[in-house]
């Protein structure tokens, strides 16, 4: 059974639709027992960091998420919340990864949010087995995770390289939206679901 963590964030439906297209049923839940007993856990998210963390803390989900041992997939805000802290609302996050989430600097003449299809490179997570260097994935975000020892793929936006994904043990986290990234996104979702 695949548990999709329910919290006050958008795009949950997109993730569940993508799982459905791949032939997988999923359960949207904030029940600790259901999450702990799931074969795999997906932590989606589009939203604002401080209100999302407040919700997770209030519902006792922070400690649950941190202690999960099954394959775990964080997406977009669901990746940023796995870091130590975020500049967005100056928020303390879950701390699986030691990084601080930063805001794209303003006034450089580039467009924020970083929105659209961009390439990922230096792939080093097994869920990218069927993907290629330079595959295009769909991004929408105004905050980013700097490169670190846990970076499992790299994206570049107007000269700034940042973590397109992070990997540590059972925690696979993606800044982009695999559920909205056509075939390239479906490949890695399938790998995750099949337990690569």
């Amino acid at each position: 059974m695949i548990a999709v963590i329910k919290y006050n964030a958008g795009n949950v439906l997109s993730v569940m639709n993508a799982l459905g297209r791949l032939g997988y049923e999923s359960v949207l839940t904030d029940d600790e027992r259901v999450i702990r007993n799931a074969d795999k856990v997906i932590f989606p998210g589009v939203g604002e960091a401080s209100s999302a963390m407040a919700y997770l803390n209030e519902h006792g989900l922070s400690s649950v998420i941190k202690s999960l041992e099954q394959p775990f997939l964080g997406i977009c805000l669901g990746m940023q919340l796995m870091c130590a802290s975020s500049e967005e609302g100056n928020t303390e996050c879950l701390g699986i990864f030691p990084d601080r989430v930063q805001q794209f600097p303003k006034g450089r003449g580039w467009k924020i949010p970083h929105m659209g299809w961009n390439t990922i490179n230096k792939l080093s997570d097994s869920i990218f087995r069927d993907n290629r260097e330079g595959d295009y994935l769909y991004f929408v975000h105004s905050f980013y995770v700097p490169l670190s020892e846990y970076t499992s793929s790299v994206c570049e936006y107007d000269g700034l390289e940042f973590s397109a994904s992070l990997k540590k043990g059972n925690f696979h986290c993606l800044q982009f939206h695999p559920e909205k990234s056509g075939d390239a996104g479906e490949k890695m979702l399938r790998c995750f679901l099949e337990g690569v």
Binding site: N17, G20, R21, Y138, K180, S181, G182, D183, G185, E186
Partner: peptide
């Protein structure tokens, strides 16, 4: 559309 299409 949301069920069937994997682009935004």
């Amino acid at each position: 559309v949301a069920r069937n299409i994997s682009i935004p």
